[in-house]
Amino acid sequence: MDKRITLTEAVQLVRPGDTLALGGMTLYRRPVAFVRELIRQGTGDLTLLAFTAGYESDLLVGAGLVKRVRTCYFGLEIFGLAPMFSQRVERGDIEVVEETEASLAFGLRATLAGVGFMPGQGWFGTDLLRVRPDVKLVTDPYSGSQYVAFPAIKPDVAVIHAPVATRAGDVVLRGNLAVDCQLAMAADRVIITAERIVEQPDEPLDIIGVAVDAVVEAPRGAAPTSCWPDYPLDGAEMLRYVEACTGGGFDAYLNAFLDG
């Protein structure tokens, strides 16, 4: 089955108000080409879900398309804070649903297991339970111990960039997986953007085609983040971005980015 569509068509699978999950890890294998087209089409009111959020997510937040963020880390690694995310939270323009590695990982696993929550040991003694009143405690029926019941997380759409995919949506990711495989299984709609479309991958699959709704050929679709081993992170571009934003130049940067 041929699931190939254009980037323009793929973005139309995202509806205003959706929970949009972006694959990849910090500054690695992020779906940047997809984000560029999403900003061009202006689909907004989004809940952004990312295990870690980086450059691609900061652009979406800066473009004003995100009303709510769910992630355990939103930053640019050694390049510093994600400037637009920090600014918009400090201004009160966007809502943050505080997450941690465990709330995201257990939440996705709950969805995959078909249950409403997964219990975990984390969060006790922190302020997280105070700002997440939706997260409840649960008593272990066997030992009587208390755990945090991390609620199931279900994205509407997941977008994952891959080095290699087939027309049917079989996907090779080659590592730095974050929770990409779980996102692909949990989301209602799954879009793969890929450096190359091949007949038959000669490496083990990370995502099987039955999980995937659409495949888009997008060479250099993760740049300036990396797509290992095809191209590394472009550190000079990260510096340009941070310095543009620091000088109040996000809009000019975004305009140039959209022309790219």
Partner: peptide, 17 residues
């Protein structure tokens, strides 16, 4: 209304428990 919004705690709230 934070003075500074930081990236977040990653998994520190999980493992410290």
């Amino acid at each position: 209304s934070p003075k500074l919004r930081l990236p977040g705690c990653g998994g520190i709230a999980d493992v410290t428990a």
